[in-house]
Simulated assay, not measured.
Amino acid sequence: MSASAPVRADPFATLRRGLPDQYLTPDDIAVMFKVPKETVYQWHKKRTGPPGFRIGKHLRYDPADVHDYVTDRKTDDQAAA
């Protein structure tokens, strides 16, 4: 019996059913927003994207904060229109 690598859930599918029960990685954010991972790091550095935080050297995102960020962006865009 061979050991297989753990399978990560698709962040899109998880968010469609509700908030995931784990913190999101820069890779997850890049996949969700369809941007390069470097863009995610630039957003964090410039504080222009969803708020992230560091756990040691690792950048993580709270799914609730990402949801709030998207909701705020949608509200801002609708108000500007």
Rank of each mutant, 00 (worst) to 15 (best):
M1K: 00
A3Q: 00
A3S: 07
A3L: 12
A5T: 04
A5V: 02
P6E: 11
A9P: 02
D10C: 14
D10A: 12
D10Q: 09
D10F: 02
P11G: 06
F12T: 12
F12E: 11
F12M: 12
L15N: 01
L15I: 02
R16A: 06
D21S: 13
Q22L: 04
Q22N: 01
Y23G: 03
T25M: 10
D27G: 10
D28K: 07
I29V: 13
I29K: 00
V31Y: 02
V31G: 10
M32Q: 14
K34E: 11
V35S: 11
P36N: 04
E38N: 07
Y41Q: 04
H44A: 06
H44Q: 14
K46R: 15
K46G: 09
R47F: 05
P51M: 09
G52D: 00
F53C: 08
R54Q: 01
K57T: 04
H58A: 12
L59S: 13
R60C: 11
R60A: 01
Y61Q: 12
V66H: 03
H67T: 10
H67W: 09
V70I: 13
T71Q: 03
T75M: 13
T75Y: 07
D77C: 08
D77T: 07
D77L: 12
A79P: 00
A80T: 13
A80E: 14
